[in-house]
Structures are given as C-alpha cells and as structure tokens.
C-alpha cells in the first residue's frame, strides 16, 4: 500500500506501476546497496504475484477446491471407520490429499502459469524490466508456498473438525512444514514444463502428468489398495516420495525410508532445474 500511495512525480509513479524501485536520485542516495533494492523488488514482485493469484480465481478456485472436495468425499464421508494399517482413512488421506493439493498449487502456478504468460508475451516484457529473473521465480515460489499453506489449512480444518483426527500440535506443524517445503521440487518441475510446453499445450500436458501420477502414487486412494502394477510403478514417481514421509509423520508404516524419499526429491529438483534452465535459455534465444 505504502509504495503506491506515497506522493511522487508522475514519472516515479509509472515506475512503481511496473514494480520497480524508486529511481529518483534522492531515493538512490538513500539506498546504500543494490542488495536492499533487490529485496524491495522481491517484496513488490511477490505482492504482484499474490494479487494475480487473487484476481484470477479461474486458477485458484479449482486448485483449492479439488483436493478439499475429494478429501471430503473419500476421507470424511467414508473414512472415519475404515482403517488403513494403523491410520483411519481420514488420517491417511489427509496426508495424501495434502500432497495432492501442494503439488497442484506448485505445478500449475509454474507450469501452466509460465507457459501462458510466455504466450501472452508477458515473460518477454519482464525481460525488458530491470528485474533479475531469479527474483521473479523466487516470488513465484513464495506465493506457491503460501497457496500450498492455504490448501493445507483447509484440509486440516476438514480433517480435524469433521474427520475425527486429533494430533499433537507438533505433528500438525510437522505435516504442514513437510508438505509446504516438499512442494518446491514440483515448482522446479513446473518451471521446466512451463518452458518446454507451448502455451496452448501446457494445461493438457500438465494434467496428463499430474493426475495419473497422483493416482498411481496413492494420493487419491491409499497405496495399499492399489493394483500390483501401480504399486511397482509408484516408488519411481516423485508424488509418492512426497506422500510417504507425510504418512510417516502421522505414524503410518511407510513404503520407503524418509532418507530415500528426500534424496529422490532433491535429485528430482536438480534434474528439473537443469532442464528448466536449459529450456529457459532456449526460449530466450528463440525470442531474443
């Protein structure tokens, strides 16, 4: 609010609309270093991304509503008396729909978001701004995490107040932290997809990866009830490795050690980053 409401010359105001730090000589004199400027850009960019999220309910609402709706159906309606190993169905699916929601939030924000904005020429325009690309992606990341947290809060409220789930405070916090941070590899994956796919193909391609991966990894229905082929495939999929430690936090018997899941996700992030950066460079050559 502050940044937009300060009285400035018309030229300075334009700069603000572009999300830039003030460039009047006086302001520059007050900024002791470029690092502080970058932080400011980051804050403004995060705000702008957040505003975009709020003002484009076409993306936000489904990404928020789907995990909640499915969890309500499978976890709450049927899940209170059924047991999956040591967990109630409501408890089990809390972890897996948490993973499902978090993956969706990140993969769509980066994948479909970037592909679409590339198509609109918005990413090209961004390059004309004195905005380091890293900061833009960091801002997207923070917003993705915030959105993940909102989805988790919705799921936790449903599970806790309607699903009969009671956990020590530390367990609630641990689960939220793991899932929120565990969404980041999927942000990297989304980045790669966003630069690899054309703007029109992106939503279809991403759904074709996201939904089957979620199902085979046991996010919709418990891994334990999946057919044998899926059980064999699941340990090769990243979604599986986000869900298993989450289940472990709730006290379930997991099908992969936590260390293996973490290693998998780190490797998955690194590969996605390499591919993503390559695709990003290719994209810039094509358009640049």
């Amino acid at each position: 609010m502050n940044a937009l409401s300060t009285t400035r010359t018309p030229a300075a105001t334009l700069d603000h609309l572009n999300g830039l730090p003030p460039t009047t000589p006086g302001d520059q004199a007050r900024s002791p270093s470029g690092r502080q400027n970058h932080f400011r850009i980051f804050v403004l960019e995060t705000r702008a991304e957040l505003m975009k999220l709020l003002r484009m309910p076409g993306f936000t609402l489904p990404a928020f509503a789907f995990p909640l709706m499915f969890y309500g159906l499978f976890g709450i309606t049927f899940g209170r008396s059924q047991q999956i190993g040591p967990l109630t169905m409501a408890g089990y699916l809390l972890a897996t729909y948490g993973a499902f929601g978090v993956i969706g939030a990140n993969i769509f924000s980066f994948g479909v978001g970037i592909a679409t904005e590339r198509g609109q020429g918005w990413m090209l325009l961004k390059r004309a701004m004195p905005l380091p690309p890293v900061i833009h992606f960091l801002a997207r990341m923070v917003v993705g995490m915030a959105f993940s947290l909102v989805i988790l809060i919705g799921l936790f409220a449903l599970g806790g107040f309607a699903g009969g789930i009671a956990l020590p405070l530390a367990t609630w916090v641990k689960l939220a932290t793991w899932l929120t941070l565990g969404g980041l590899p999927f942000a990297a994956f989304g980045l790669a997809l966003g630069y690899l796919c054309g703007p029109n193909a992106a939503p279809a391609v991403i759904n074709l990866i996201y939904l089957p991966m979620a199902f085979v990894s046991g996010l919709w229905l418990p891994y334990e009830v999946l057919p044998g082929l899926f059980k064999t495939l699941a340990p090769w999929l990243p979604a599986f490795h986000l869900a298993q430690p989450a289940l472990g936090i709730l006290g379930a018997d997991t099908h992969a050690p936590v260390a293996r899941s973490v290693a998998y996700l780190l490797a998955f992030t690194a590969i996605s980053m390499v591919v993503g950066i390559a695709a990003y460079r290719r994209d810039h050559k094509t358009w640049g």
């Binding site: 040591p86 967990l87 408890g91 409220a157 020590p168 405070l169």
Partner: peptide
C-alpha cells in the same frame, strides 16, 4: 486443531 487427550490414549489417526 484437535489434539489427542492428555491421558496418553492413542491418537485418532494412529490407533492400533
């Protein structure tokens, strides 16, 4: 958020 009762009873999500 609901927490298990303090008397040491198992939590609702990891009963048996």
């Amino acid at each position: 958020l609901p927490t298990p009762p303090a008397n040491g009873a198992a939590t609702a999500t990891s009963p048996e």
